[in-house]
Design a protein around this nucleic acid. Structure first.
Lengths: 331, 331
DNA sequence: ATGAAAGCGCTAACAT
DNA sequence: ATGTTAGCGCTTTCAT
């Protein structure tokens, strides 16, 4: 900066002003500074700026994984929006392990991110969120959704329970009575729990008895076994899966068990990742607008940074995509 | 840090040493400092450290998009490895636009990332890479692959040309003669070009005449039209696509044209994203080890930071996954 | 409108 | 082994 100042025959203070508050500097000086910047290829060092201004213009992002397309697409929306708004992002993943949530957030806090966008296992009980609250670091949760009693935290999500209810109601409408839910880890994941509730809502509303869900750890290798057992004992005619990934896994394993989808058994998913639309037959699933969720989360977190109060949860509309993996049961 | 020093009754220098070179400080003092750190919940401010040490322990990552599973998985490997090695990452995407490559790299350079991992459109002609060379910023390319004459740049990739050749040879082995290639933007993407070369190699090796490829811009909306035209004029019995995404798109559009895969026409892809394995029927494709590519890229870039010279390109082994979308042509 | 100078939090050279 | 201190690059009072 000293070089630039010398080159433009002004002080470093003026250089700084040109870069930050150009309106407060005379046009001719401004011009000279800008030219010096170009000529010397000056690139402000963010560390200096951060140290002094106590702002990094960086958003921290904590997500369970990037291998799952839902989160990858969300990150895509986050990154694009952050860039448009002049922020960059720093990311850390947790691999679905609550212990890692703490480590991930510490790394980002050490970088002094201005705010965070995160998906945690359970938004109601989270040491990390408690910490962020205590340290007054603004944050917005994506995908996580909170009940009426926990509205202290800013969330951006779809209505998981309602979406699950609608999808299960759709299966019931097709004529299914024995519908089995394939859930993620219900104890750890609030979304899994909400979708399970939605499943129960729909079943009971139709006068049906909910079946005990199969709980699968993320990417469980023994999924096929559990699935086989459950199919023998419950004889379901439809499977409602709490993610597309689980649905694809189920379809594959059903094929191995000699069951055709949807002829022998129907399968519905949740997420609506772009690839699930391209597969043949296209997956019947609940479409979450992942990119839009990421976008909205960044917009909200920037609003918080600009002094907004925590508002109502942002609930984006989901959509039932009636693909071709769910059909009426065999008579 | 002053607080911590006061609390532990030592100087700030000792606090710094405990944090950076613990072996150079007496155990009792070290203990005292650590306790003060815990008690005061001291979190070193990276900006101060960066400013002084001129190192951020941050890796910049530039990728075309995060919506494409191949890059998302690669990023997953990058993030995990970086974390293990004590680095964090800062990402920027380019949306496949060379102009944005420049912008993305500038953002990261402004953050003073220690090094970069990137995928560019064309590694042979890249203003961004020229700039990084000029500024002596270490970097490693992922997915990009360079010919013998351009080995100045560090790359981590599969052998795109050989992989394409093998896949096309496999199709020829099944009995196909009229094989059409669906390529990305050949002019802009070096990988697309290499895969097209591999296609040509295999065709000529079998005494067949390569057909002119269909070039599709990324996520082209008019893909169906071009595909329909080409199928009418070339009457191919197999399609070799330069990405899984293109393959899925093709399969969907073929269905719309009344063509069944693989009964009427075979389709092979390239990438081996995890979802392409789960679809029914599973996609016949070239599997790139995306997570391992990301891991290897980070290992190499850290080696460069530690003073290693640019070595031979790292070529990871691909794999042909013989799914069920390619079969012998109708007699 | 502009400049001089203090100081953000940290590390490392130097002194002890 | 430990302390003192300069200074990394920037922004922001405070003067002028």
């Amino acid at each position: 900066m000293v070089d630039v100042a010398r080159h433009a025959r002004v002080s470093v203070a003026t250089v700084s002003r040109v870069l930050n508050t150009p309106e407060r500097v005379a046009p001719d000086k401004s011009e000279a500074v800008l030219e010096a910047v170009r000529k010397l290829e000056f690139r402000p060092n963010l560390a200096g700026r951060t140290l002094r201004a106590a702002r990094t213009r960086t958003l921290g992002v904590v997500l369970p994984t990037l291998s799952h397309p839902v989160f990858a697409e969300c990150l895509h929306g986050i990154e694009a929006t952050a860039r448009e708004r002049g922020y960059s992002i720093s990311i850390a993943t947790t691999g679905y392990e609550p212990a890692q949530e703490h480590q991930a957030s510490e790394i980002l806090l050490q970088r002094r991110v201005d705010a965070m966008v995160l998906t945690v296992a359970d938004a109601r009980h989270s040491r990390v969120l408690d910490k962020l609250d205590a340290e007054a670091v603004p944050y917005v949760l994506v995908y996580n959704q909170l009940g009426r009693r926990h509205r202290r935290r800013s969330t951006v999500s779809v209505d998981n329970r309602a979406a699950a209810r609608q999808m299960v109601a759709h299966l019931i409408g097709l004529g299914h009575r024995r519908i089995l839910m394939l859930a993620g880890n219900v104890r750890q994941s609030d979304r899994s729990r909400q979708r399970l509730q939605g499943y129960g809502d729909a079943m009971r509303a139709a006068g049906l008895t909910p079946l005990a869900p199969i709980e699968l750890a993320f990417m469980a290798p023994d999924a096929a076994v559990h699935l086989g057992d459950a199919i023998r004992s419950d004889a379901p005619t439809a499977l409602f899966c709490s993610s597309d990934q689980l649905a694809l896994l189920a379809i594959r394993d059903l094929a191995a068990l000699g069951l055709a989808v949807p002829a022998d058994i129907s399968v519905a998913g949740f997420d609506g990742t772009s690839l699930s639309a391209l597969m043949v037959p296209p997956l019947t699933t609940v479409v979450q607008p992942s990119i839009a969720l990421g976008r909205a989360a960044v917009e909200r977190v920037i609003a918080l940074l600009d002094g907004a109060r925590i508002a109502q949860p942002t609930v984006l509309t989901h959509e039932l995509r009636l693909g071709a993996t769910a059909a009426p049961p065999r008579p």
